[in-house]
Design a protein around this nucleic acid. Sequence first.
DNA 1: TGACGTCAAGATCCG
DNA 2: CGGATCTTGACGTCA
Length: 417
Amino acid sequence: MRIGYACLTVAVEGTQIKTCTLKTATEERLLSLADENLRTLERMVDYNIANGIRLYRISSDIVPFGSSIAAALPWDALNRRRLDTLAQKIALSGMRVSMHPGQYTVLNSPDADVVRRAVEDLNYHARFLDALHLDATHKIILHVGGKYGDAAAALARFASVYRDLSSAVTRRLVLENDGDIYTIAEVLDLCGRIGAPAVYDNLHNAIHPADGTKSDDFWVSLCRGTWRPTDGAQKTHYSQQHPLKSRGAHSDTIAVDPFLDYCHRLSGELPDIMLEVKDKNRSAVKCGLCLLEANQRLLETEWGRYKYSVLERSPQEYQAIRELLKDKAGDNAVAFYRAVGRALAAPEDKGRAVNALEHVWGYVSEDATSAEARRYASLRDGYLRGDMRLRQAKSALYRLAVKYRQDYLLGSYYFTL
DNA sequence: TGACGTCAAGATCCG
DNA sequence: CGGATCTTGACGTCA
């Protein structure tokens, strides 16, 4: 099985997707953005390979306005070499990618123009995956759409539009339950009628249940039956409720223990799991190390990334983790992430935060100019006095890490936690 | 008409 | 001027 994340990569330099507004969109600008974003995508794929992540959702925004004004542009032909390189990296690493048009791509709308644009959008997504020479196991995940006061008619409209889609789209198309309109039972029923696989989303089902008496395992097992051999392994979405935000809002990070509980309650072969979470690749690496095979080297790398955030919050956990990792043979990923989680949950403490700042400053202090040193000291002291935020000192340090090419720091989570 | 959700561009404010 | 913080844009649905 595989564990993956969606679209964006945190704490990896040069992985920012760029776009523009309709106002400033010219053919030249769109083509140059597509070119730039494909380079960015390659850096994300490289990161995934280096970090053992073999499931990844490609952002729909790689080609800005790809389904409308850029649909007429030869972004694929112009980037043939880069796409081929990307295709090779994805194939050789056994990575499975997907795409997911958002809630505004609605195939069953009563408005014919909305449907036409939705079809164009699906065509764009298929064109992108086809440009990477990927087979039909690389999916496009879609929600069913609206009900418009008459679910039966809305479902019939979906089936009818679906019949007219090109096979380039339908061979990849997978339907997902959503958090307020179509339950997993309704999606399964529709999938049965049209012959498409179903993705089960646990959080959507939790807030919009098909049947409160049925377990996640029940629905995952039912969905498994919709995946044919040409579709590849079953795929699911997993997320956790943010404790403070609105119903259905994704958590900032995946809590390891509920995630492991969820997986252990599933019967049969584990499906591929796409995590939907704010901290993206950070959670994907974490869940992979906790659920899949032990990887001491990657766990040590993870410690390097979390180190200064842990030090900032809890010197006790910092020491405890150092002890824990001395056991090179032990499969201690779960214990490691529990300790990290406890540390990050600790309240901000100015003394500890400044201690961490000083450690990080140590990486760039020798290279920094005297003006940079003064700037850093004034941000640090301003934070101690209480008239500046910690974030300001941290982002100043981040800019110095970029300027003086401190690669170890650039991979750290310190600047984004 | 505005809320919804998500992200980056664009605008504006600050020192 | 750079950097921090705000508002806007892009999409469709629904109250």
